[in-house]
Computed example of a mutant assay.
Amino acid sequence: MRAIVIEEQGGPEVMRLGDVADPEPGPGEVLIDIEARGVNFIDIYQRSGAYSMPTPFTPGVEAAGTVAATGADVIGFSPGARVAWVLRPGGYAERAVVPADRVVPVPDGVTTEQAAATLLQGMTAHYLTHSTYAVQPGDTVLVHAAAGGTGLLLVQLAKARGARVVGTASTEAKQRLAREAGADEIVDYTSTEVAPAVRELTGGEGVAAVYDGVGADTFEASLASLRPRGVLALFGQASGAVAPIDPQRLNSAGSVFLTRPTLAHYAASHEELLERSTDVFGLVAADRLSVRVGGRYPLAEAGRAHEDLAARRTTGKLLLA
């Protein structure tokens, strides 16, 4: 089969497509014929070395397709069933073997492409708005990169829970997409200081929560945008890692909370993974959560997909098909 293999971590050029041996499922594993693969910032972190990975490896922690075969002791999956998975590498390939406890069924009403475009970012938006800071009716929240893949889903889920959503976006096209997703206010961070604008929009109070997947470039504005006892959920570092901070700054900012969450800890068990995926896929099937695919790339052009995502040239979700 064909697969992307990374022999050593580095730039996009280290991803090389070649022929590898077909995998075989062992006990408790599922062999999946992959039809669509999600491209995520975690793929970039793992490829670049920002997150250490044993090499060689095939990147891609989110994909969808059909079950080709199962190993011993696998219950609930049979050949031909449509499935998706997250949080295990191997997606940038034609086939992958995945532990059964990381695999979820794709229901009727959700296409395989939608599943690959939704699972990781949809569950991220779900845990952020339902668990990390559970949005309450009447809250005002700030969503950075509101036209990105996760950002568009965050806007929709926060609105569904009754929030007033302030989003940040740069170009007019991105601002339009964020508004179409439900954002009530947009701050153009390229021409306007975010924190003062947020303070003005909230009558000086600040927001209940900031959902920040950008990191270094936005952290200071995020901290300065919070109301007293607000929550800064720093769930990514698209612009680079945030430097260590003095905890006293959380006091002076209003006894605020800072957390660095990750989906792995909010879908740690198979039961929680199923609960979140069922909720997210149910919203997609009911047309209550819109998934925007912003770009489709052949597997051989995974490097270009990484470059486009890192440069923020895209909106919505990127797929390798």
Rank of each mutant, 00 (worst) to 15 (best):
T192R: 15
V187H: 07
Y189H: 13
A183S: 11
V166P: 10
L201Q: 09
A178C: 05
R199T: 13
G182F: 12
T190Y: 04
L201V: 09
K174D: 00
D188G: 02
T168G: 06
T171Q: 00
E185N: 13
K174L: 00
G203M: 04
A173L: 01
A195Q: 01
R199A: 15
P196S: 03
A183F: 11
L201P: 11
L177A: 08
L201A: 14
S191L: 10
I186L: 12
D184Q: 04
Q175H: 04
T171R: 02
V198L: 06
T168V: 07
A178R: 01
A181F: 13
T202L: 11
G203V: 08
S191F: 06
E185Q: 08
A169G: 03
V166H: 13
R199H: 15
G182S: 11
T202G: 12
R179K: 09
Q175Y: 03
A181G: 09
T192P: 13
G203H: 07
G203C: 08
T192G: 13
T168M: 03
K174T: 01
V166W: 12
V198Q: 14
Q175E: 00
D188M: 01
A181R: 06
V198H: 14
V198S: 13
E185F: 14
T190E: 04
S191A: 15
R176K: 05
A178Y: 02
A181Y: 09
G182K: 10
T202H: 09
